[in-house]
Design a protein around this nucleic acid. Structure first.
Lengths: 161, 161
DNA sequence: TAGTATCCGAGCAAATTACTGGGTAATTGC
DNA sequence: GCAATTACCCAGTAATTTGCTCGGATACTA
């Protein structure tokens, strides 16, 4: 799992789509204008998103992009995975002492952590973000609840400080 | 919050330190060997970690690195923040329509998300990962022992007619 | 047929990643 | 003191990624 600016661009663009695409498709030119991302870079991102079925393009005048699925069926993890491909962190493949021994322990631990972050981001949908935008008053409470829920799901209790 | 390979390297190295540094300091050469990271790159990472007080270096023969604090006082977020500086996603700073309007809504939403991930990673300490590793190791040994015991009982031979 | 917009791909500047190689400073054992 | 060891430091640099410019082709609307 990676969290880079590329992924942020994609999430931001998809969020723009979810917010403004309620009636009719949204053009990349609009998103480019709104979010300050170059059109060609958006095209690249949306090519990846399209190949994963996360968006649906409509050509011609009046065209643009729709979400490929309902907003509550698209998770942040879906988006990030579509544009930021998953790099395996298995440098030790084939190295000695790295089969089942202590050497590789840290690697598998990181993989676990990565997996948990993935689960975390899989539980947040575009719809969640839209709703968060709609009601900002309960923001802090919601955040707290979300974090608690995640801890519960993930099962990794933190230090009780 | 960013999640890059650089951060992974740092977390993995710190985990190595937590695992192998129980008696005496650990040299970067060892970590380099264990984790397959170049020595000089480790030096760069550890310079950043040291400046944040996450590790403590000891020079001379028999020297190396200690954790700067107890393992349960070092979070994954601490480590990642030390090496992967926090890039603000505020491209829109100064752009029109981006003060408090709809245009900037997606940005603040992402900031919220980023914050949640930060909180999530702040709640996971090195100690948590070590314990997870121990548990995993224990399960593995247990499984092996159980398998061995079963083999002994069953005999592991003969046609299971 | 003209205009709009997605699609597509080559190329490129800037930044980041990860490394090489040159050292210096502190500490240890002889 | 002397040599070995290790952290520490810094300049350079190849490889990769990021984000963009440019020039098109294809599909659709009017």
């Amino acid at each position: 799992m990676r969290l880079s600016t590329k992924g942020r661009y994609a999430v931001t663009a998809m969020l723009d789509l979810a917010l403004n695409g309620t009636e009719g498709p949204v053009t990349l030119a609009d998103i480019s204008e709104n979010q300050g991302i170059s059109l060609s870079y958006l095209e690249q991102l949306f090519a990846a998103l399209r190949s994963k079925g996360l968006v649906r393009g409509v050509r011609g005048p009046g065209g643009g992009y729709y979400l490929g699925r309902e907003a509550d069926e698209i998770s942040i993890a879906d988006i990030i995975c579509a544009v930021d491909e998953w790099v395996e962190f298995t440098r030790c493949k084939g190295r000695q002492n790295c089969q089942d021994g202590q050497r590789c322990l840290t690697h598998s631990l990181w993989d676990d952590l990565s997996q948990q972050i993935f689960i975390f981001l899989s539980d947040i949908t575009l719809q969640d973000l839209v709703q968060r935008g709609e009601k900002r008053e309960a923001e802090r409470l919601e955040k707290k609840a979300a974090t608690a829920a995640v801890s519960k799901v993930v099962g990794l209790k933190g230090r009780a400080a």
